[in-house]
Design a protein around this nucleic acid. Structure first.
Lengths: 149, 149
DNA sequence: ATTTACTTGACTAAAATAGTCGGTCTTTGC
DNA sequence: GCAAAGACCGACTATTTTAGTCAAGTAAAT
């Protein structure tokens, strides 16, 4: 299992869209500045998010990305999935052939853990994050920072 | 956050000790054969497990390792910790300085997830694994396999 | 037409993983 | 006392993944 900056960046960027995308598409340059994520790296991530139909793009001046569905219907687990970070904790990717055809001693444990994590993350929608106190505070700070520059 | 073969191997090896260590120390060679883990790699892992006082060693012929405490009092979270696989899912290692001194947009989410995982894994003792039906079945299969060779 | 911005693919440095290898030190049993 | 078993230690390495750069497009709006 891995949960690295890739998945974290993807969720952060999607949350940025949910927060600022109310009126019109958001450019990757904006997200890059607000969330301090390399622009070229965002391009890579959004290619996958688009393939997985989590965002739609608008080309040309004033263009950018917007959420493909409502923030209510998009959960964190599917964002992480979209950028190829499996939440699976087993070594056999759930296939159950971790030791010479059968399951290994701890297969069941990792399987349980995977389900636990998946249940947790898929229960969290972008909308629910938008409404969190902790998130709102960060949004305010980011707004101040952007005024200064 | 990472959960890779290192943490999985460590838990598997510790469970092997809990299962077979009732009468006398278990050699790494035994564990290596039963669990199909490279002997040299096990040595690395057990160095850390010993430093963290999860196992004690007995040198010389007939020697090996045994659990330092009862299987009831050792939980999976501390085993994974011992081999340096942090369960923390935040990018700032919980420090809260993920974005220019403050927290990033999704810090709280990863913090929550980390706690969730930690609570789950620290609630599982080696003993509770020993008594699981799924584990017992694998133990039987492994016993058969070792008879054949 | 020109500008803006998305799109694609190839490429790369750095880190982590998953080991290997060779040797040393201790203890037990013959 | 000596040989073998097995823990212990450190250095070394191939592979993979991550995180990111760079350059060359393509599409759409003004």
């Amino acid at each position: 299992m891995r949960l690295t900056t890739r998945g974290r960046y993807a969720v952060t960027a999607m949350l940025d869209l949910a927060l600022h995308g109310a009126d019109g598409p958001i450019s990757l340059a904006d997200i890059s500045q607000r969330q301090e994520i390399s622009l070229s790296y965002l391009e890579q991530l959004f290619a996958k998010l688009r393939q997985n139909e989590l965002v739609t793009s608008v080309r040309g001046p004033g263009g950018g990305y917007r959420l493909a569905r409502s923030g209510e219907s998009i959960n964190v687990a599917e964002i992480i999935d979209a950028v190829n970070e499996s939440i699976d904790a087993t070594s056999c990717s759930g296939k159950g052939n971790c030791q010479s055809g059968g399951v290994c001693l701890t297969h069941h444990l990792w399987d349980d853990l995977s389900q636990q994590i998946h249940r947790f993350l898929s229960g969290i929608s972008l909308d629910s994050l938008v409404h969190q106190q902790e998130v709102r505070l960060v949004v305010l700070r980011q707004a101040e920072e952007s005024e200064m520059s």
